[in-house]
Design a protein around this nucleic acid. Sequence first.
DNA 1: ATAATAAAAGAACACCGTGTTGTTTTATTA
DNA 2: TAATAAAACAACACGGTGTTCTTTTATTAT
Lengths: 205, 205
Amino acid sequence: MADSKTDLRIIRTKESILTALIDLIEEKGFETITVKDITTRANINRGTFYAHYQDKFDLMAKCEEKVMLEISSIAKQNFPNVIASLEMDSSNVPPFPLTVSLFEYLNKNSDIMRALLGPKGDLSFQTRLKEFMWDTLYGTNPIALVKEENFLVPGQYLSSYMGTALIGVVQQWLNSGRKESPQEMARILTIINVNGPFYAAGLKK
Amino acid sequence: MADSKTDLRIIRTKESILTALIDLIEEKGFETITVKDITTRANINRGTFYAHYQDKFDLMAKCEEKVMLEISSIAKQNFPNVIASLEMDSSNVPPFPLTVSLFEYLNKNSDIMRALLGPKGDLSFQTRLKEFMWDTLYGTNPIALVKEENFLVPGQYLSSYMGTALIGVVQQWLNSGRKESPQEMARILTIINVNGPFYAAGLKK
DNA sequence: ATAATAAAAGAACACCGTGTTGTTTTATTA
DNA sequence: TAATAAAACAACACGGTGTTCTTTTATTAT
C-alpha cells in the first residue's frame, strides 16, 4: 500500500474555501458570513462544503488551529525564550529573536492573520492567542527569569497587559499596511516593553 | 403640550431586552444569539422587538453607544486628563483620577461591561473603545503633554499598545470577579504604564 | 373615573439559510 | 483504462427572519 497522497481535488477545494473565507471576513465580518456566501465565492457546491466541515464555526476552528500550531512551532525553534536574553540595565536592548521570528511569520501570512486579528475577525481567537503569547513569549518556564514573587503587581494583570498590548501592536501593523519591517516592529515592541510606554512617549527620564 | 414622558411599557420592554441580551451574550456569545432567543428570554412578543430595533445588531449598536456616551462623560468630568498630573521622575506615582473614575464606572456597570468586553462579546466594540481610550485618556489635547516629536516609537503603535493593554487589564479584572477595588486597579495600571511591564515584573532596576 | 391613545400580543406570511440525504457526473489515482 | 471517490446536483424538512395585520391590554391625559 503506497502512502496515498490526498486527492488534488480536496486540496483545491479546501484552498478555495479558505481564500473565500479570508476575503469574506474582511468584507463583511465573520458573524454575518453564511455557508452559502463561502461556497458561492469559492465556486463550489454547498454540499461539498459540508463534506469537509460541519459548519462555518468548524471551518474557522480548524483554520485557527493551524495558525496556532505554526506559531507554536516558531516558539519552540526560538527556545530559550526572550527573557533569558535581556540585559537588565540597557535601555537600548536589541529586539528579541523570538519576537522577530513572530513578526516574520505574521508578515508571510498577513492575509489570514489580518482577517483573524482584524476588527471583523474572531474575538475568541484573539483571546486564545493572547494567553498563548504570554505563555510562550514571556511565560514562566525553566529558562525564564520571571518569578512571581518579584512582581510589583498581580501576575494575571501583567500577563493580560503584555498579551493584549502585543496583539494590539500586531493588529495596528497589519491594518496599516505593514510599512515597517519585522525587525523594526520587534525593536518597537521591545523598547516599549522594557522601558514602558510613558518612556517611549518621551514623558519620562 | 406637556413634555410627555416615555411610556412605562417601553421602558420595561427595553430593560427586559437589555437584560436578556446581557445574559445571553455570556451564555452563548453574541454571534449565535437569535432575536427569538432574546424575546423568549425577555418574555415579550417577537414583534415587539422589531418595534424598537431593526435587528440584533441594531440593538447591540444602541447598547454600545449608550456605554460610550457614559464613558465619554466621565472623561469630560475629569478634565484635564491623566498626563498633566504625572510627576516625571516618580516611580511611585498616585493613580490617575480619571483611571479611578473609569474603573468605578466599570464596577457599577460590570454586568454589561463584562458581556461586551468578555471573550464572547463584540470585537468591533473593543476596537472602538480602544481608540476612544487613547483619545480621551492619553490622547493629544490642549492640556496633554504628549508631543509626537518626542516619541521613541511611532505614535500609532504607542496608541495601540496602551489602548489594548488597558482593555486587556479591564477584561481580566471583570472576568476574574473584580477582587481588587477600582482604586487598586488604577494603581496597578499606573505602575505598569509609568515604569513599564518589565519593571513591574521585577526584571529591571 | 373615563375616554383616547398607543404599546404589546398574537397570528399569518413569504423568504432565506441550514444541514441532510440521495443520485449522477466528473476528475484523479493506481 | 478501470476503479475509486470527490464534487455537482436536486430535493427535503426545519427554523429564524422581518413584515403586516388584527386584537387585546396598559398607560396617559382629560
